[in-house]
Simulated assay, not measured.
Amino acid sequence: MDFLYDLCGKPFGWIMRLIYDWVDNYALAILLFTIITKLILFPISYKQQMNSAKMQRVNPKMEKLRQKYKNDAQKLQEEQMKLYQEENVNPGASCLPMFLQFFILFGILDVVYKPLSYILKMKDDLIAKAFEVVQNINPELAKQGTSLRQELAILSAHHQDSGAFDQVFAGTDFSSRIAEFYDKFSLFGINLGEIPSWHPDVWNAAAVGLFMIPIMSGVLQLVLTIYMQVVQKKRNPGMPGAGCMNIMLYIMPIFSVWFAFQVPAGVGFYWVCSSFFSLLQTIGLNMYFTKERIEKLCEKENKKMQKKYVNGKKSFMQRMLDQQQGLSEGQQKRERYAEETKDMSRSELSKYNQQVLKDARQRMAEKYGETYESDEGESSKK
């Protein structure tokens, strides 16, 4: 797991360091980081939402296929793939943005957990030495400082007793750098390294602020979900509910709240920012993708795809369709083989299998222009 955090964290740590050096505040750096990642991922989000609009456009045709082939699941799947190919729709287009969001989330998690490494650029041996001080002055806090949380434990312990660190790091700028960064590692007085709690020791302003970060995250996720459902029903009033998909959409806000109570507030703050900008982006793109504009874009894309077909290039859906047809042909061959051999004896089945193998070898030889010699000495070459 540490390897995954490092893999995701290093590139984002470099970006966060550049932003932090510019704005000199960690919360503002997270806000700007969220905006930058949204801008970078906007082309993917644009294609995803356009694909979603095209899916809504073909839903009436899809419903007709479901009614026509409701008793033939295999044929229904084949016809659906053909329809997707004809309309240039990719039903799996939402997978990539979801994967990228989790990749970014792991990166942000690592950056928030390791501000001394990514923001202050401290070496591992220096951090290890500082954590030894934490173990001496606050064993309980050190127990919470797992490999991922050591740097946050150092920040907290230094804030509580900076003198203990001065004895170890005398003559260096360690304490001054830590103290200066601690003051900027906050949002309206909320330490972004702290984990929100349902039952804080004292309900002061900082505790209330920490508590509200997960709640705001869940609320924004819920608003985004409800908005998407309203738009979908408005565009497709006759479309049946998505069942499990709807359940998953409403589970996400709950998961968002739960997750934000398990991680430092900086991660929850990123999630709040990300959900807010995702909501604005979704509203804007839905206003942009009107029915008239979708029709024009689809017509333009279909012309491009026709040119590709002329040049022998296949789209993703065409490759999927070819694969599906190959699987279907394989299934038909297996069914035909079972039908032809069901009444054969063992010796007859053995001879039949030998003949099938011989025919297959001959076809392969003819296909690649090679000479094929059978057991009887016969040969063939295309």
Rank of each mutant, 00 (worst) to 15 (best):
Q332S: 08
L285D: 04
K296C: 03
E339L: 04
Y337V: 00
F276N: 00
K291R: 14
G330L: 03
K296T: 02
Y352A: 14
K291I: 05
E348N: 01
N302S: 13
E295I: 05
G330K: 07
K291T: 09
T290G: 15
L297H: 01
R293E: 06
G312S: 04
R334T: 07
K313W: 11
D343C: 09
S275C: 14
E335Q: 10
S328E: 02
Y352C: 11
S328L: 04
N311H: 01
K307V: 01
E339I: 05
M344F: 04
Y352I: 13
K314R: 11
V310P: 06
Q331V: 11
G330E: 08
D322F: 07
Q281P: 08
Q318M: 09
K314N: 03
E301A: 00
E329D: 12
Q331W: 15
E348W: 00
S345T: 15
N286G: 07
S328P: 02
K296P: 04
K314A: 00
N311W: 02
Q306K: 09
L327F: 14
M305T: 09
M344N: 00
Q318K: 07
Y309A: 08
L321C: 01
K291Y: 02
E335H: 11
E295S: 14
I294N: 09
F289V: 06
S350V: 12
E340V: 05
K304T: 12
M320F: 00
M344G: 07
I294S: 00
L297Y: 03
T282G: 06
A338S: 14
G284D: 07
K296F: 06
R334H: 10
T282K: 10
Y288L: 15
L280P: 15
N353P: 00
E299I: 01
T282S: 13
M317R: 05
K313P: 03
I294A: 07
K308H: 06
K342F: 12
L321D: 11
Q332L: 11
R346N: 09
S328F: 01
T290K: 05
K313Q: 02
R334F: 05
M317S: 04
E295N: 11
N311V: 01
N311G: 00
T290R: 10
Q281A: 04
Q318D: 03
D343E: 11
M320I: 07
K313T: 06
R346C: 00
S347Q: 10
K313G: 04
M344S: 01
E339T: 02
N311I: 04
K303E: 08
Q318T: 04
M287Q: 14
E340M: 10
M287N: 13
Y337M: 06
E335A: 01
R336P: 03
S350G: 03
K304E: 13
K308G: 01
M305Q: 06
S350W: 15
T341Q: 14
Q332V: 05
Q318I: 06
